[in-house]
Amino acid sequence: MILTNAQIVLSNEVIKGSLTVNNGMIDSIDHGNVTLPGAIDCQDGYITPGMVELHTDNMEKHFTPRPGVAWPAVSAFKVHDAQMISSGITTVFDAISIGDVIQGSERLNNLTRMVDALNESRERKLTRADHLLHLRCEVSHKDTLEMFNTLLERTSAQLVSVMDHSPGQRQFASLEKYREYYQGKYKLSDSEMKAFVERQTHTSQLYSDQYRKEICHTCNRLSIPLASHDDATQAHVDESHSFNMVIAEFPTTAEAAVAAHKKGMGVMMGAPNVVRGGSHSGNIAAHTLASEGVLDILSSDYYPASLLDAAFKIAQLASNQYSLAKAIALVSQKPADAVGLKDRGRIQSGYKADLVWSALEDDHVHIEHVWKNGNRAF
């Protein structure tokens, strides 16, 4: 396959030229256009690496499209996969939650269904993107450690993140924001919300420190990459670094983001944060971290189509240090490198031909085609 008349986004620059693919791998990148028969004219559009998504809980909504409705698992997974590939995401770390703030939630009920569907879909070669497992561990839940150990006995994980969503700290340092979010989400009365806050505070005090230590110890022993979540202070970052965490997911303050970046942790922020112009929880905005040069990775989180849009928006910001090449690396090269994927995430000879052809349409990025291992997937 030959792609020509394209703006090819490399690791450090954008060139106008052509790209050749052989046997699913990028063969050569050349300046200038070609007129060979069969070459695909990209009409001056952008060719970027297939994106690498480290943290998305997009799968959950397809397993329970309405409250009380459990959709057939493999069918739900295939719809999720199609949504990811159509967004230009060719490698997906599906974030599956162990533990939740609500007992008996649909998230907990779907836990094994989602893991089994992921594994079955991969084994049956039903997926268009590569899907890997990211276990999100809510350490304030009493059953998290047991469920984590049980899952690791039946499947392998490629990334683990450790989080505590109890009130008054990290993502929800503002109790007002905490009440607004959970009372709205679960339709709790004032008295129910008061009891909810007390219960979550208590379980965090009982379990969080112990579970965080044990889960991190297990991951270090098994060489599974670790990510912190919602670090807010220097002390949080110091603790995360002491556990050998390589990614700082969604730090809530500039202090934490700068500290994590200095320690070599990949600072991850949400692409929806970029597209919307700020955090829905009232925490630090991703574009603010970009202006300080400490933004390393973007994640689509809950909205897959936001990822490529966010990268282009970062490149268009007036007050930052990110060229288009550096901004695209936030969704491709940087996340791949952070978790040790050395065969993808950049347009370079010898790398996987995971590619996205897109064009700017006003303030939106329109995806024309996506290739996985040199085969058209969208």
Rank of each mutant, 00 (worst) to 15 (best):
H134F: 02
K125Q: 08
V197Y: 03
L226I: 15
S156C: 11
A232C: 14
N244H: 15
N149L: 13
R212P: 02
F148E: 05
E146I: 12
D209N: 10
D143L: 02
S240P: 12
T150N: 11
R179L: 03
F243R: 15
C216H: 04
L175I: 10
H134R: 02
S189G: 14
V160I: 13
E180R: 03
H229K: 12
E153W: 01
F196Y: 12
E239P: 07
E180I: 09
D238M: 15
V139R: 00
Y186A: 04
E146C: 04
R124A: 10
S166M: 06
S121W: 02
L135T: 00
C219I: 03
D231E: 08
S121L: 05
S228Q: 01
T155I: 01
Q234K: 13
R128D: 01
N220V: 08
H217F: 09
S121T: 05
R122W: 00
D190P: 07
S140A: 14
D231Q: 03
V160F: 09
N149M: 14
S242Q: 14
E138K: 02
H229Y: 11
A157D: 04
S189Y: 08
H241L: 15
V162Y: 01
T203P: 00
F243Y: 15
I224C: 02
E153R: 02
Y211C: 03
S208I: 06
K213C: 01
L206S: 01
